[in-house]
Design a protein around this nucleic acid. Structure first.
Lengths: 141, 141
DNA sequence: CTGTATCCCTCAAGATACTG
DNA sequence: CAGTATCTTGAGGGATACAG
């Protein structure tokens, strides 16, 4: 298992010496899952749910700009992927709790690392953008 | 009424007391940068460029399914954000090399961790999806 | 409260063609 | 080779209304 970088999936007879090319095919599972996880809303939901389980309305309030529809869609996808669990409390005003599953929790560390990086370097990026824009658009207005 | 859910932190001030709620606002830098980095193609480009610098056509070939346009757009964004450098060699057949900047390199570890997680758990996810789909669609056609 | 269903529209992105 | 420019499409996602 630790025999190398990322085990190059033998999906074809190409250069097996590739270090980081996990899989270049579009339909591969990794690409597909990556797209799901790296999703705008998924990322936020997972990060929020690590603190504690949250109700639908709590999530909606916590995530500025998310529509009811997109939150529902996102939660369904995460539930389907086994990252989030959905618990319905059969009370009069419906109460639904969302929580990370163990699988979802295992993702959280990575996501936090991504968020941490972003927080740490947001100024660098802002400066880089400034520099780039200045260089490309010297004509003011 | 106090927003009890997440102590709505003084956004104007700092959020140093919050564990994971980096910022809930839509227009915040972190959210914006996150969207950029977590982008479908950006992720792949950054991962690929860590190995070595690559030419435009090499990237295009390495990333299955990316259109010329999207690769160009992605590279421009990454360049603007200071994550990728672009070097034009003034030779007859134009030769443009893309490489990670130090800032881009610092991101790579995190991205690899995300990819590694995905590779590690893709089977779990596939099973979870199977279970979910089986439960929701018992009526076979 | 927690959704589902519908309509509708924007904008991301693919295809194509053309330049340096 | 490495783009840029244009056109077109379609799917993502918002708004709204309704149901359990």
């Amino acid at each position: 298992m630790e025999d190398g970088t990322f085990e190059s999936p033998g999906y074809s007879t190409d250069t097996c010496a590739d270090p980081f090319v996990w899989d270049t095919r579009e339909d591969c599972d990794v690409r597909q899952i990556l797209d799901r996880i790296a999703d705008k809303w998924s990322l936020l939901v997972i990060a929020l749910l690590d603190t504690r389980s949250l109700r639908f309305s709590e999530l909606k309030r916590a995530i500025d700009g998310v529509s009811q529809r997109m939150l529902t869609v996102t939660l369904r996808q995460l539930e389907r992927d086994g990252l989030v669990s959905r618990t319905v409390h059969p009370v009069v005003p419906p109460r639904v709790e969302y929580a990370l599953t163990p699988l979802g929790s295992s993702l959280h560390e990575t996501i936090q690392s991504l968020v941490a990086w972003t927080e740490l370097h947001q100024d660098d990026i802002a400066r880089a953008r400034q520099r780039y824009d200045d260089a490309r658009e010297p004509q003011s207005v």
